[in-house]
Design a protein around this nucleic acid. Structure first.
Lengths: 125, 125
DNA sequence: GGTGGTTAGTTACCGTTCGTAAGTTGCCTC
DNA sequence: GAGGCAACTTACGAACGGTAACTAACCACC
């Protein structure tokens, strides 16, 4: 039995539960938001600036989901202009090592992937 | 400088390239297909059976992208009925450890996340 | 010789999600 | 009183994903 099978069998549901969690974590922006909050408490605008390409809408939605799942805490200060700070919870912090492992893998293999993609496009037109 | 910043700076594009790669890898099905091919050469139908919930359409699309990016190899045998085998390339195999790290994290924190989610729903209605 | 089964897909349709851009609130400054 | 700031929210069109039916090529059976 491979480690993957072992991992999937733990819940006895054919991997359905783990897939649900991975669906949340592995969407377009979640890992980047979590990685950006590594070791830093950040405001909404700072996050928006530090994550290139994310829209305010998607940042709001991603942060709501992370807050709901207990990975990020949201602290609002009754000031003008408003100030809202986001930080990782302990659960959120525990996601950092696997997230960085994936990011490092991406860095290591970017050139391979881009080369393969270019070759594929050339083959198929 | 955090490891994340360091990681993002390598390419000097503000993390745009790494985000492109992560967008591909972290979609709804890719990690599960890669994890399922761990240590096993599989046919289309076997993959379809082993990944609960994926449709034929999405399996086809996911495999095409993985093949294009050089993570999966596709071997078609001219038989009847047709036989097509999918296997990880060396690059694809190198993705297994970080993918399993993420899956293990999901397993370890499923109960925390589900509890937090339930509490959140209760608070907000 | 027509019916049904097999594998590996493809196609059509439709609902959900995502991105863009503009609007909102409350107060402060000029 | 016009404009700015922070943190959103809303409207709308485009892109994506899921469902289910269809296809090609051959074989086995009746």
């Amino acid at each position: 039995m491979s480690q993957y099978e072992h991992t999937c069998m733990i819940r006895g549901d054919g991997g359905r539960t783990i897939r649900t969690i991975l669906d949340r974590i592995c969407d377009k922006w979640t890992l980047l938001v979590v990685a950006t909050l590594d070791e830093e408490r950040l405001r909404f605008t700072d996050l928006h600036r530090q994550i290139p390409g994310i829209s305010q809408r998607m940042l709001t939605l991603t942060l709501r989901n992370l807050e709901r799942d207990g990975l990020v805490s949201r602290t609002a200060y009754a000031e003008v202009p408003p100030r809202v700070e986001y930080a990782l919870t302990p659960t959120g912090r525990s996601l950092i090592p696997p997230a960085l492992a994936l990011a490092s893998w991406a860095i290591d293999h970017i050139s391979d992937i881009e080369a393969s993609r270019t070759a594929y496009e050339t083959r198929t037109g």
